[in-house]
């Protein structure tokens, strides 16, 4: 097992790193994180900067299927609608995600390091709470 840095230490914030007004207002930022689907979406994008909307829908539907059982095309269509009409606009307004509708792609906005660290922390926090493990499964 490789030691993992304590994620909390990544969260020290030097005001200079935000480079002026580069960050979203706190309410917007924390609202973006206040939804399991959006956290999952952001976790996916921090590992894979660009993803097609269809692939993103696949991953979120599949992820949900691990909690709630098999999902079919109806669930898929609902998830895609929810993404396009709710989650992606909210994340775009917050300046975290770009939804390129013409290309059918979703990508992470270039965010400042502290924001990126916060997204990583949110992922790490969720992993600890959800799985009781402080790092990815070793195999």
């Amino acid at each position: 097992m490789t030691p993992v840095e304590d994620p909390r230490t990544d969260l020290s914030l030097d005001a200079g790193e935000l480079e002026g007004a580069a960050g979203p207002p706190p309410d917007d930022l924390f609202k973006a994180l206040a939804s399991e689907k959006r956290r999952r979406l952001l976790a996916i994008l921090t590992e894979q900067a660009t993803i097609s909307l269809d692939d993103l829908t696949d991953v979120l539907v599949g992820w949900e299927a691990t909690d709630s059982g098999p999902a079919g095309p109806d669930e898929w269509a609902r998830m895609k609608i929810e993404l396009v009409h709710a989650h992606l606009p909210l994340l775009a307004d917050t300046g975290l995600v770009v939804h390129d509708e013409a290309a059918g792609e979703v990508r992470l906005e270039s965010v400042s390091d502290p924001i990126r660290d916060l997204l990583r922390f949110a992922t790490e926090y969720e992993r600890v709470v959800e799985t009781g493990r402080s790092q990815p499964t070793d195999s």
């Binding site: 956290r39 996916i44 921090t46 696949d58 599949g62 990815p136």
Partner: peptide, 22 residues
């Protein structure tokens, strides 16, 4: 996938159509 989830899942596609996930 990001390792928040401990559980692996699969997506079945038929050509370009999503068929199911479990």
């Amino acid at each position: 996938i990001p390792s928040i989830s401990a559980d692996a899942f699969v997506v079945v596609r038929d050509g370009s159509r999503f068929r199911g996930a479990l």
